[in-house]
Nucleic acid binder design. Sequence first.
DNA 1: GGTCGAATCAGGGGGTTCCCTCATGGTGGA
DNA 2: TCCACCATGAGGGAACCCCCTGATTCGACC
Lengths: 216, 216
Amino acid sequence: MTVSVVIVDDHDVIRVGVRESLDDDISVIGEARDVESAVAEIRAKAPQVVILDVHLPGGTGGGALDVLAEVLHRPGAPRVLALSVSDAAEDVVATVRAGARGYVTKSISGPDLSDAVRRVATGDAVFSPRLAGFVLDAFGAAGGEVAAADEDLDKLTEREQEVMRLIARGYTYREVAEKLFISIKTVETHVGKVLHKLQLSNRHELAHWAAQRRIV
Amino acid sequence: MTVSVVIVDDHDVIRVGVRESLDDDISVIGEARDVESAVAEIRAKAPQVVILDVHLPGGTGGGALDVLAEVLHRPGAPRVLALSVSDAAEDVVATVRAGARGYVTKSISGPDLSDAVRRVATGDAVFSPRLAGFVLDAFGAAGGEVAAADEDLDKLTEREQEVMRLIARGYTYREVAEKLFISIKTVETHVGKVLHKLQLSNRHELAHWAAQRRIV
DNA sequence: GGTCGAATCAGGGGGTTCCCTCATGGTGGA
DNA sequence: TCCACCATGAGGGAACCCCCTGATTCGACC
């Protein structure tokens, strides 16, 4: 049985590499290099599997996550295999949360990639060995740090996130206040709430927290 | 005129992508996926150009730099075109310092990559537009931020470096003082000297400075 | 229509950070 | 020997950070 796929990656070189690496029983019926054309291409071609670059630029939610949001929540949705240079826990968990059925890094070999596509097409979940741990941690009983990453961020209101980002970049309260056209006291209030919600004790820990999650 | 190249990248997919993206007048005469086989392959095949992944794992100097060190300093050395997902200034400058004649990111198109290979083969230096600035900064008259990295660190005495590391990690003056068994005032003095010597204005910039140089 | 959360702002207090000057003792080179 | 540099430390001040209480406005929700 031939599996139909659409490849989404902004790098020409990598799209070519993936296309040429796939076995003959996998048919590439479309390609896209940005969020908009990916969504259009996937809807038009209705592939069984989408091979999706996690670090796709553009969109409002980080690229790949936008594509997943647009494409998955409708009947006949394809299975999505995420492809990434990164094996950072945050990326993996965020992508899987968004609905990806597999996550492999670009260090995968051609035959293994073809195998992963076939297995995702039949409904399996496919993860590189060292990534499986992250996923299990994130969805396991204990939850773990990684799983809490997105939920922690969700606890913050939009304004709090905005302030948090600036503080994490090292701006003083005064500078944040000037940037956002609010008073210093308001900035203090927001920062206080952020620190409390994230259970951090000062702005340095906040900067570290944000850096780990690639928020800054 | 046909240009001979060796492709060095630990990712199968990317090697395939590069190979398939290159024009017919560029002949891939060898490939390698780690430092040792890259050095051996380049010496054996003597290509005109080596396409080298900057983030090659293994070796003692960061992978790609080891390959450059081994290969360049002998007669008949090939021209090296660095290929990277990263456009971070540190990576670019370190690679160029080590002798690469070009640096392009993986977002390059197939035709542009072929063109870059041909130009490097003829002796040109090839840099993506936004990378050229880094290189010029680093080698220009003023020296530039990047080039000054190690020299800046050398300006600090051992004690100052010790204090600087702890401050960059977010310890308060009090905590640093307790850790080093000195008074807070001494810590203040050291920090003040560090900030002055590095021409930084506060501990946040110091943390950022240290993080960029992977000191912390 | 009352309640609740989000966003805004104020006052005040205690600790921290950064800068300035100044001082002492040790070490190592000219 | 003397000077330069380093490590140590003190005093004081201005600004900044963090926390506390308390307040108003506005929109959403039941």
